[in-house]
Design a protein around this nucleic acid. Structure first.
Lengths: 139, 139
DNA sequence: ATTTAAACTTGCAAATTGCAAGTGCAAAAT
DNA sequence: ATTTTGCACTTGCAATTTGCAAGTTTAAAT
C-alpha cells in the first residue's frame, strides 16, 4: 500500500485516502454483519478477494484503528477480527452506500440480509446492529 | 477504466464497483457544494487530480448516469457538469463519510464549508443543499 | 490573422492489483 | 510420536491503473 500522505485537509478526501478502494468497506461490511471473522471467513465472501490484497487491507485497517485483531481462543494460528469503535462508526456510511446501490443499481440483491430492515427503519437498524457489535466487546 | 463487471449482487459491492476509488466521490463533493463546475474548476481543487484521471472519471460518472454534462452557454468548447438525481442521491453517503473523517481523523478541516452545518442539523442541511441543486435544474 | 486558453489526449514510468503457487506452523489424525 | 491436514499468510510475476509532464485541438479574444 502507499504512504499515508493526505491529499488535503478535507475530511472526505482524508477518509478516501484510507478506505477509498474497492475492498476496504467490504471488509467492514462483513464485520458489521457477522461481528467477528477469521481470515478464512473473509476469503469465503462472494467477491473472492485475493489473499494478498486481503492481508494488505487487514493490516492497513488495523493500523488505522478501524479493526482489531485478537487471538482466537485456544488457537495460536488463527486470529479474530472485529470492528473497533472507529470502525463501528463507519456503519452509517456503509448503510448509505448500500441504500444508494439498492435504489439505483440493477440486479442488486434485494434480499440482502439487512437492506429490507434498513429501509423500514434506518435508525432502529443502526441501533440494533451497534448493540449487537458492542455486546461482543464484553468478551 | 475497467469493464463494468460486478463482483457480486451485493449493493455495497456494486456501488464500490462504480465509485470505489480515491477520486470519484471528490468529484461528487465538488458538484454537491458548487452545483455546477467546468472541467477546469475540478483541476483547481486542492487535491490536484491529474487531467487524464479527471477526464476518465467524468466520463465514467456520466456513463453511470451520476453526473450530466451540458453545454456551457454561448461557448462550444466548455461543458458544464452537474449532478443527476442519481448523483444527488449520493450526497447522504458523502455526508456520512465527511462526518466520519471529521470525527476520527486528525487535521481535517473543521472549518470545512459544510461540516459545521451538517453537525448541527444533518436533515436540514441535506434538504437545503438538495433544494439548491434542484433549483438549478429548472434552467 | 494571431494569440490565448480551456478541455482534453498521449506517452511512459511507477505503483497497485490480481492470479497462482508456495511457505510456515500449529492442530488434528493416525 | 510421527505424519498429515488446514489455516494464515507470502511471494513472484503479469496485467491493469495511476500519476506526471507534455502535447493537441478547437474556439474565443485581441
Amino acid at each position: 500500500m502507499k504512504t499515508n500522505e493526505k491529499r488535503s485537509d478535507c475530511p472526505i478526501s482524508s477518509s478516501l485516502d484510507i478506505f477509498g478502494d474497492k475492498w476496504s468497506l467490504l471488509i467492514v461490511r462483513d464485520l458489521m454483519l457477522h461481528k467477528t471473522r477469521t481470515y478464512g471467513d473473509f476469503t469465503k465472501a462472494k467477491e473472492k478477494i485475493a489473499t494478498n490484497i486481503l492481508a494488505n487491507r487487514l493490516q492497513a485497517l488495523e493500523e488505522q484503528g478501524i479493526i482489531i485483531k485478537s487471538p482466537y481462543p485456544d488457537n495460536k494460528v488463527r486470529g479474530l477480527y472485529k470492528l473497533s469503535e472507529k470502525g463501528v462508526d463507519l456503519i452509517p456510511a456503509v448503510i448509505e452506500i448500500a441504500l444508494w446501490g439498492n435504489n439505483h443499481l440493477s440486479d442488486t440483491d434485494e434480499s440482502s440480509p439487512f437492506i429490507e430492515e434498513v429501509k423500514k427503519n434506518k435508525v432502529k437498524f443502526l441501533k440494533k446492529i451497534m448493540d449487537k457489535l458492542m455486546a461482543n466487546d464484553a468478551a
